[in-house]
Amino acid sequence: MSKILVVTSGKGGVGKTTTSASIATGLALRGHKVAVIDFDVGLRNLDLIMGVERRVVYDFVNVVQGEANLTQALIKDKRIENLFVLAASQTKDKDALTEEGVKKVLDGLKSDGFDYIVCDSPAGIEKGAQLAMYFADEAIVVSNPEVSSVRDADRMLGLLASKSHRAVNNMPSIKQHLLVTRYSPARAEIGEMMSIEDMMEILAVPLLGVIPESPAVLNASNSGQPVILDQESDAGQAYADAIARLLGEERPLRFLTVNKKGFFSRLFGN
């Protein structure tokens, strides 16, 4: 049984693509066969974050329009077995995607035996974002602890519950998860940032994970390595925890408290 996951947020720049890349990579590391699709037609970026930008020959729109088949368009990851990337088109306009076209590609991936299909949504609530979430079984809603991001996340949760294939056809609703990114425990502690409890109280969705604000995320994107591969880093470990929870395992939340530095570590750094 294939499972379709959408990573969405409404607001741009909160970490959808970073999250899509790490979730897809993490699921593949656990032995699942995974495809990750960039739905941001015209503004392709997942390829860069996955480090496959120079290997894109055919894209999502090519497959939708019958100019290439899935086997030609899927880019096989060189690091991890069973991980494939389907890039967005950089040249076509956003109307190139249709509901039937997307369904055709998803059905093709299902029959190719993919366990997970991760849909990286564009920002906004326009057609691309609607199509990315339309066929989803589960949704990961990404939000920063910041007012506009939380408001947009709530709006997305509403749309997931009313405008998806499952909602329209009275099927069991999409399973929703909240993923908080760019969390800074130090700022939350002194009341400069909403806490995880605040965000959960407002959004009322089960928490999949909390990714701390971390230099590892930019380092990872600089080098085209999903941050989950950096298991030395806090963000990488936090994503690994989120994968475990997604697979139904219990994991305590980490990186939510401030590391108090001792006198000597203050003095000598680190």
């Binding site: 408001r151 709006r155 109280e201």
Partner: peptide, 26 residues
């Protein structure tokens, strides 16, 4: 003493989100 802006953010969000949910109810 420091002004707690996180608390302010939460209060503002609770009000606007309750309002918008009521409007957008499917």
């Amino acid at each position: 003493k420091k002004e707690n802006t996180a608390k302010l953010a939460k209060e503002r969000l609770q009000i606007i989100i309750a309002h918008e949910r009521a409007q957008n109810r499917p």
